[in-house]
Amino acid sequence: MTSGEKYVAAVYGIVFLFVLAYVLIMATKLARLQREVGELARLVRSRLQVETEAPEQEEVAVG
């Protein structure tokens, strides 16, 4: 491999590494978002469960 070829390989390699790094960052962010959505879904489910388990109030005739 000549000196020129090495430098060309370095340039294209760096651009490739940059794209890979970007994909890695996006993957980390997506994983965090997925975790947070999961937490929210659990929170909503637990709230719905509390609402359905709460005893219904008896209707009382007034007057």
Binding site: Y22, M26, K29, L33, E36, V37, L40, L43, R47
Partner: peptide, 23 residues
């Protein structure tokens, strides 16, 4: 592509934070 992806991620992040605060 990277611009759209980053924008998508940031908007999703903001909406999720809003939802969290509401709940």
């Amino acid at each position: 592509t990277l611009y759209r992806l980053e924008l998508l991620g940031k908007r999703l992040d903001a909406e999720l934070r809003e939802l969290k605060e509401a709940l």
